[in-house]
Simulated scan of single mutants.
Amino acid sequence: MLLAIDVGNTNMTFAAFSGRSLVKEWRIATSNSRTAEEYGVWLSQAMALDGLKLYDIKDVIIGTVVPGALFNLKGLCKRYFRCTPLVIGEDNVEIGMVPQIDNPKEAGADRLVDAVAAHSKYGGPTIVIDFGTATTLDVVDEDGNYAGGIIAPGVNLSLDALHSAAAKLPRIAVERPSKVIGKNTLECMQSGIYWGYISMVEGLVARMQEEYGTKLTTVATGGLAPLLARGTDIIDHIDRDLTLTGLVEIYHKNN
């Protein structure tokens, strides 16, 4: 089996694949200080609960936006899987497309991997909307190349900023409010976050399509994608496993 590891700023996802079929996935909070041994103990226990063993894993591919986590993940692969992982962004890994931006090295691994997955599953041109730590909107052109995009603060970052900077504003969960015009602090905050982000995404997608000159298929990913997609018709597809799909596609391009 293949183990695909997606390292985000907030969470890491470990997913076992047989061919291109997802077998099981597990999540853990992202940390730079977690050792290879700690990963090994946690992952062996998580896999055992699903009837899997560490020795079932034969190959590993890693996509990370947290460089500090990579050393110990490579140690995990060497010690427990007896393999050298493919790492997105390293010179020996072919992703199958050319970033059409000023400095290709600036493109985050997650954004490139999502572009590969979006073109593989939905064709092009496409806008990938990732509701993660940051909210990103990225264009994938007709040939599957990453063509640039937009980075905005993520939903939870905005909530943290409101709570931290305004003494009387509480920490709240992201929910769809029943009305746009709130009648109390909680409703006002929920409306501002929920409808505010939907309005932002709708406006940005419209401007991106106008600038690109044609209709672009929109694909949303990230944990909040299903909730936010219920408030707009601008999103054509919801794909929470988009990054994992891209990692698997890149693995097969290199094998």
Rank of each mutant, 00 (worst) to 15 (best):
M1F: 13
L2N: 00
G8S: 10
F14D: 01
F17V: 01
R27S: 14
R27Y: 12
S33T: 12
T35G: 02
T35Q: 01
V41F: 13
W42F: 15
L43G: 11
Q45P: 00
A46S: 15
D50P: 08
G51L: 12
K58C: 07
K58R: 12
I61W: 03
I61D: 03
I62D: 00
A69Q: 07
L70S: 12
F71V: 10
L73S: 02
G75C: 06
G75P: 04
R79F: 14
Y80P: 15
T84E: 15
T84V: 05
V87D: 10
I88W: 01
G89K: 09
G96P: 00
M97F: 03
V98G: 00
P99Y: 00
I101H: 02
N103K: 04
P104H: 11
K105W: 10
E106A: 00
L112P: 03
V113E: 08
V116S: 04
A117T: 12
S120T: 10
S120V: 00
S120N: 09
K121E: 14
Y122T: 09
G123H: 05
P125T: 07
T126L: 07
D130F: 04
F131G: 12
T133H: 01
T135K: 07
T135E: 06
T136D: 11
T136R: 08
L137C: 06
L137F: 11
D138I: 01
D141I: 08
G144Q: 10
G144Y: 13
G144S: 11
N145Y: 09
Y146I: 08
A152S: 15
P153S: 11
V155Y: 05
N156S: 02
L157M: 12
D160Y: 04
A161S: 13
H163D: 11
S164M: 10
S164A: 13
A167M: 08
K168Y: 03
R171C: 02
E175H: 06
S178P: 00
K179F: 03
I181Y: 04
T185V: 10
M189C: 05
S191D: 09
G192S: 10
Y194A: 07
Y194T: 13
M200D: 00
E202K: 10
L204V: 12
M208C: 02
M208L: 13
M208I: 15
Q209K: 09
E211P: 00
Y212D: 01
G213F: 07
G213H: 05
V219D: 08
V219L: 05
V219M: 11
A220M: 01
G223H: 02
L224C: 05
T232D: 09
D233N: 13
D233H: 13
D233T: 13
I235Y: 06
D236R: 03
D236S: 12
I238N: 07
R240K: 12
L242M: 10
T243C: 13
Y251K: 05
H252N: 08
K253G: 09
